[in-house]
Amino acid sequence: MSAAMLEVERLTAWYGAAQILFEPSFHIGRGEVVALMGRNGAGKSTTLKALMALIPQRSGTVRFLGEDISHLKPFEIARRGLGFVPEDRRIFSDLTVLENLDVGRQPLRHHPDGRPAPSWVPEKLFTIFPNLGEMPDRRGAQMSGGEQQMLTVARTLMGNPLLVLLDEPSEGVAPVIVEQMANTIVELKKEGLSVLLSEQNIHFAQLVCDRAYVLEKGQLQWHGRMADLANDVTVQRRLLSV
């Protein structure tokens, strides 16, 4: 495992008076695909949002490429190379596919060692997501859930991120799309991208992830290699099954 890109220490987050996260600490290495697992309401999405500073009430340290980013604004965090794909997709429904991609466009980025991050243009994204290539001028509002899911991933990639926070890409889309998403993540990993994948579906996570962290009620309950989690039925039953 290479040096950690993202190091998170004792992260907390509140919605009003309700504390959602209770100091989980974790890290993601360069080129790794890491699963953040847990049941509904365990705090997976909240973790990703807190990392992006999209939740005002939070504490803890977040270091990205060695820099403390916990006090930066969301756009500054994104410009450091942290891409965020929200669970509810949040496509700009009035904008066409190409326009959505354009909003996500950011300059090319480099790793600290000077190597460039994978760079993306619409044409290249259309080879990964052929469906999008067939409808460049369709408005977001007229796309299916699966197409929107592809678009939201593609839109974030347009920012040329070094690490992608991917929130439940398998939720609420057809099985064929889920499979395509898994292939996409494997593809991204090959390109050298690191991914933190929030997921409840172990079968999906198992296909693409190296390691896993498991949350329950905002606390970190288990972490280790993905293969170990996949084999450990007891842990799965205790922390994941519904």
């Binding site: 969301p74 410009r79 839109r155």
Partner: peptide, 8 residues
Amino acid sequence: EMVGALGV
């Protein structure tokens, strides 16, 4: 908010 999270 999403526009901000995309780096704008």
